[in-house]
Simulated assay, not measured.
Amino acid sequence: MLWVKSLHIIFLITWFAGLFYLPRLFVYHSMMAATDREGHERFKVMERKLFFGIMTPGGILTIVFGLWLWLGYHWNGRWLYAKLVLVAALIVYHVYCGKLMLDFKHDRNRHNHVYYRWFNEFPTVILIAVVILAVVKPF
């Protein structure tokens, strides 16, 4: 099971790398002058590749190996259910990132860079809470 736990952590890091970086790309993309068409297209490619090539596989494999750990260790407790609620929130955040990426793709962005700067902080808070729940198991 240590291999499964290792893979879970590796893919969690991969997923979070994307969850941290994609909103940062949104910040820069939303700050670009409307006349820089080439720059907009470059950001669209970067966002798509990050979302589909890194974030989504990382998220799926994190969940797969997390479920494997849950079944293998038969973990139970309120800490686990709290962690699962946070994972569900991350999944919603991930899907919303995909919606925002599609808005940029179709030139329908309605938010400014300040919105994306605040939006970028959400996964940090969730990561801190998930790590504390998994390591300390406070309840």
Rank of each mutant, 00 (worst) to 15 (best):
F43T: 00
V85L: 15
R117C: 00
A34N: 09
G72I: 14
R108Q: 13
L67C: 14
V64A: 13
I91W: 14
R78I: 15
F52H: 08
L22I: 12
F11E: 06
R42C: 02
G58I: 05
V92Y: 11
R42A: 09
N76T: 15
L71P: 10
L102W: 05
H111T: 09
Y21I: 09
F26Q: 00
H8F: 13
F43S: 01
R48P: 00
A88G: 11
H94E: 06
R42S: 10
H106Q: 11
W68R: 12
W15K: 04
Y28M: 12
L84D: 05
K83Q: 10
Y28D: 07
Y96V: 11
I91K: 00
E38S: 12
V125F: 15
Y115V: 03
Y81A: 07
V87S: 14
E47P: 02
D103W: 00
F43M: 04
I54G: 01
V87W: 08
W118N: 07
H74E: 14
M55H: 03
A82H: 15
M31Y: 13
G72A: 04
G18Q: 08
I126L: 13
I10H: 10
R110T: 12
E121S: 07
F26L: 11
Y93W: 04
H74T: 15
R78D: 15
T62S: 15
T35C: 04
A89E: 01
L25S: 00
H113G: 03
L102C: 04
H29N: 08
Y96W: 12
I126C: 09
A34H: 02
I63H: 10
F65Q: 10
R42D: 02
R48Q: 12
L90I: 07
F119E: 01
H94T: 14
G39W: 06
L102Q: 07
Y93G: 07
R78L: 15
I13F: 13
S30C: 08
A33Y: 08
W15S: 15
T124V: 06
T62V: 11
E38G: 03
M46E: 05
L102E: 07
L80K: 04
E41V: 02
E38T: 09
E47A: 03
H40V: 05
L67A: 11
A34I: 04
R108G: 04
V92A: 14
V45D: 12
G58L: 03
A33D: 15
H94R: 12
K83N: 12
I128V: 15
R37W: 10
D107Q: 14
R48C: 00
F65L: 10
G98H: 03
Y116P: 02
F52G: 08
G59I: 03
L69I: 14
G59K: 00
Y115G: 01
E38F: 11
I91N: 03
K44E: 07
D36I: 03
Y81T: 02
